[in-house]
Every structure is written in structure tokens, then in C-alpha cells.
């Protein structure tokens, strides 16, 4: 009897959230899919069937191809950069140095501010102006006599995205460090001791023991950073505004939908973004849920 009551109560309590999630997330996803298969252009809804036309057109749209390339460049540089910097910081902090708590907080703080704030600051730091209008990093380099380092940052042809990724790495590598530090602390000291007794060098302890044990952490970090980079939007707008060489699908989606009223094309880009994130997230969820079930 008591068990039945509990069941009824829990169902009653969970129902509103299920309904809300069903409508506001899955309902709208379904609606977007429908819009992406229509001819809707202009203010008035037009649900006439277009099949996959919007998707097919996107893959021959030169702007969308620029977007895809930019996303790939950004994702590779951002994820690898964060992993490398994060791991290096974590290993340094793991050496029992003095003031560890201070440095840990210091490296983690950038994560607490939003991409917009980061963008505004880095916009100034990476100012590409030359001559007497030079400022930020370029001015610093120039005054230090490091003129070969002066460059046009995000306006560099073809590789401007790398400069944007730099700002993102600054922001998220502290978070990656925290993940790795957690992983390092979970490795029992006995394993290292045993390796040392066996005569392994510190370098070999890292390459043969610690890095393999950190692999699950790396996987989690890649998933988290990967989905952030696929959705990047605000950082680019804050640093560079809307300009095509630094275009990504999210910006194209916004501009084509609200500036050009191509609602069906905007919906198609949105669905493609969702799918690309899902490719990352779903195997990960499957993997974690299964391993949790095993425990």
C-alpha cells in the first residue's frame, strides 16, 4: 500500500517536468525539423513540403562550406589547445608545490566569466591595427622588440579562426586543468611508488602509467569542449562582429533567419548543429549510463 502511494506520488511529481521538457525541448525540435523541410521564407509561415531541398542546398552553399571549415579549424585548435594546456597545468599543480590552492583558483577563474566578456577583452588585446594606431599585444611585442610576433590576429586570411580559438583556450583550459587534476588525484600513490621501486624514470611513469589512466578524463573533456566549440557564437561576435571569414553555422543561422527571413534554411542549419552535437553526446551518454548501470 505504502509502495503504491509512493509510486503515485513520484509519478505526479515528475509529470510536470516531463510535460515541460516534452513541449519546450522535444516539441520544438520536432517543429524545427518540420520547418526545415518546408519552403518558409518571409514573415508568414509556409509549411509547403520541400523535402530535403534546404539541406541539399546548404551543402553547395559557399558560405556554409566556409562555416564548416571554420568550425573544424576552431574545434581542432580549441580542443587540442585546452587539453595540452590543461594537462600541463594539472601536472605542475600535482607536484605538491606551495600555494597550490591559490594557483588552482587563479587558473580556474577565467571560466567564471562569460564568453562575451572574454571577447571584449581579447578584442582589444588582439587589435590588428598597424602603425601609430597599434595597441594590445601588437604594441607590447613591438615595444619589446619582438616585431616578428606582430600579426593581424583574427584578420589573418584563412587562419583567423585560430586567433578566436586562442581566446577560448585561455578561458577553458583552467576547467580542463580541474578535470585532469581530479583524475591525477584519483591515481593511488602506491602505483607510482611501485613503478619507482621497479626503476622507472619519472618520464616513463607519466607515459606508461599516468597518461593511460587519465584516458577517461580526456574523453570527458573532449566531449565537453567539443560541444562548446560546435555551438560557439558569442565569442566570435564579441571579438570580430559579423564578418564572413569568421562565420560559423550558428551565426549564419541567426543572420539568415532574422535578417533575411529564410526561416526554413535557418531551421535546417539548426537541425544540422543539433545532429553534429548529438554525434558527440549520444555515444558518451550511452557509455556513461551503461558503466553506471554496471556499478
Amino acid at each position: 500500500m505504502s509502495k503504491n502511494k509512493d509510486t503515485v506520488l513520484s509519478i505526479a511529481l515528475v509529470t510536470p517536468s516531463i510535460v515541460a521538457v516534452g513541449i519546450f525541448i522535444y516539441g520544438f525540435i520536432a517543429w524545427s525539423v518540420r520547418v526545415s523541410l518546408s519552403n518558409w521564407k518571409g514573415l508568414l509561415p509556409d509549411y509547403s513540403w520541400a523535402g530535403l531541398k534546404n539541406y541539399i542546398n546548404l551543402f553547395s552553399d559557399p558560405r556554409f562550406l566556409v562555416d564548416v571549415r571554420n568550425t573544424v579549424v576552431f574545434t581542432v585548435i580549441f580542443v587540442l589547445g585546452c587539453l595540452a594546456v590543461g594537462l600541463a597545468l594539472a601536472i605542475m599543480l600535482d607536484q605538491n608545490l606551495k600555494g597550490e590552492a591559490f594557483f588552482r583558483s587563479l587558473f580556474l577563474f577565467p571560466m567564471a566569466i562569460s564568453f562575451i566578456v572574454t571577447g571584449v577583452v581579447w578584442r582589444w588585446l588582439m587589435n590588428p591595427a598597424a602603425g601609430d594606431r597599434m595597441s594590445g599585444f601588437n604594441l607590447l611585442f613591438s615595444n619589446l622588440g619582438l616585431d616578428f610576433l606582430v600579426n593581424s590576429w583574427h584578420l589573418t586570411p584563412r587562419w583567423g579562426m585560430a586567433a578566436i580559438a586562442l581566446a577560448a583556450i585561455w578561458q577553458m583550459s583552467g576547467y580542463t586543468m580541474a578535470l585532469y587534476l581530479g583524475g591525477l588525484r584519483a591515481i593511488p600513490d602506491e602505483i607510482r611508488e611501485a613503478a619507482r621501486v621497479d626503476g622507472a624514470s619519472e618520464f616513463r611513469i607519466y607515459t606508461n602509467i599516468i597518461f593511460p589512466l587519465l584516458r577517461p578524463v580526456t574523453l570527458s573533456a573532449m566531449i565537453i569542449l567539443g560541444h562548446i566549440s560546435l555551438k560557439v557564437f558569442d565569442l566570435i561576435i564579441a571579438i570580430a562582429g559579423k564578418q564572413l571569414p569568421l562565420d560559423v553555422p550558428a551565426i549564419y543561422m541567426w543572420q539568415t533567419t532574422f535578417d533575411g527571413y529564410f526561416f526554413s534554411r535557418g531551421a535546417a542549419i539548426g537541425i544540422l548543429l543539433l545532429l553534429s552535437v548529438a554525434v558527440l553526446i549520444i555515444p558518451y551518454l550511452y557509455y556513461t549510463l551503461r558503466s553506471e548501470a554496471e556499478i
Partner: peptide, 17 residues
């Protein structure tokens, strides 16, 4: 109109690049 203008804007962006 806005749709036309946004298409011209995209073409212009590609041209500037």
C-alpha cells in the same frame, strides 16, 4: 527586400574574403 539584401551581403562577404 531583407531576403535579397541578406543574400547580397553573403555574396559581398565572400567577395571581400
Amino acid at each position: 527586400n531583407d531576403s535579397w539584401k541578406s543574400e547580397i551581403d553573403t555574396a559581398l562577404g565572400l567577395f571581400l574574403a
